[in-house]
Amino acid sequence: MAEERGLFIYGIVPSDVEPTPDASGVGDPPGEVTVVRQGRVAALVSEVSLEAALGRPADLTAYEELLDGTAAVAPVLPVRFGTVVTGPDAVADLLDAHGDRFAEALDELEGRFEYIVHGRYEESALVQGVLEDNPAAADLADQVRGRPEEETREQRIRLGEIISQAVELRREAENRELLDLLGPLAVSGLARPPSNELDAVHAAFLVDEDSEDEFVDAVEEFAEQRRGLVRMRLRGPLAPYDFVSAHQLAG
């Protein structure tokens, strides 16, 4: 019995976009990336087996690399990872039904990229700061210092709760300050959920290419002010994953 095949959709692009010859898709072995065009828009796709599970780290990496590479040269609307349809006709039908809306969104994204700002507290510096600001936490730390865990379980639990609450409050304040600082330099900005209990800031910004240098300088200044307390990371330019939800296709 022949293996059933489908088309994995990566993103929506203007109809004149061509994938590079070395573009690699998801799957094992990776599928060849091609284009299905319909009017003013097109979809980047590759053939996949409908029987194979997609979701390996390598698949997600291939998906992101293709979209980020495309965003560097043309606007792109990322489609939710894992979206697979039966074939080119199904892709063409989707593009035909939503082509005008997709084309308008692509026009809005021309020359704009996503940047993700992520900061994580240095645990030792964070705990020291909490102890300095909170006498009750400092007292609990004194009670557990040098004593067996089984004898100080309740104090350790309470101390952990105080530190966790402090992190949440600090995270909220840091994210507000980040969004206030970078908001005027971006088309749009939004806070992302923390990816770790020690996250200090996590936010996404849609940035116009004319403002990129100023935006990056502001992020560097923000990071410098927190040196030793927060390890900062800036990712970008990326495809606008966080800013096209209204245009994504259902799986």
Rank of each mutant, 00 (worst) to 15 (best):
Q143W: 00
S49W: 13
L181G: 00
D89Q: 14
E108W: 05
L44V: 05
A186P: 03
G55N: 10
A105D: 01
A53H: 05
G87S: 10
E108G: 00
E212K: 14
P148A: 13
A191C: 04
T70M: 13
G6H: 04
A138M: 06
E110A: 15
R170L: 12
V76T: 06
N175A: 14
I162P: 04
E123S: 14
G87V: 01
A43Q: 05
S245T: 10
D68L: 06
R80G: 06
M232E: 08
D180T: 05
H202A: 12
G27R: 04
G11C: 09
E47G: 10
P148N: 11
E172V: 13
E197L: 12
A125V: 07
A53G: 06
F222Y: 13
A62Q: 04
A138F: 05
R171K: 08
V127F: 10
P88F: 09
L206N: 08
R235M: 09
E172L: 12
G27Q: 09
S15I: 02
G189R: 03
P135K: 11
D142E: 14
R120V: 15
F102T: 01
L54K: 02
A136C: 00
G87C: 09
A204H: 03
E221M: 06
V91M: 02
D93F: 08
E104R: 15
D199H: 10
A200R: 02
G39T: 10
D199Q: 02
D213Y: 01
N134C: 10
R235C: 00
D199W: 03
R192I: 03
D59G: 06
I163T: 11
V45T: 15
R231D: 15
G146H: 08
L198A: 11
L169V: 07
G228E: 07
F205W: 12
D16W: 13
V17M: 07
P237D: 04
A103Q: 03
D142A: 15
T83A: 13
L50A: 07
A166E: 13
L229W: 02
L67E: 01
A166Y: 07
L159A: 03
S124Q: 14
V13Q: 12
P237E: 07
V84Y: 02
P30W: 06
R231Q: 14
N134D: 15
E18K: 13
E151V: 08
G146R: 07
S46R: 01
F205Q: 09
E64G: 02
E108Y: 02
S15E: 09
S24P: 00
A141W: 09
E32A: 12
S49L: 09
E123N: 07
A74N: 01
A239I: 12
D180H: 05
Y10R: 10
E18Q: 14
T61Y: 04
P75W: 05
L66E: 02
V207Y: 07
G129D: 09
D59I: 03
Q248T: 14
S188P: 00
Q165V: 01
L67K: 03
E172C: 00
S211H: 14
E108Q: 14
G228Y: 02
V26G: 05
R156N: 03
E151L: 15
V41P: 01
T86A: 15
R171C: 06
R40H: 08
A2V: 06
D139E: 15
V45L: 04
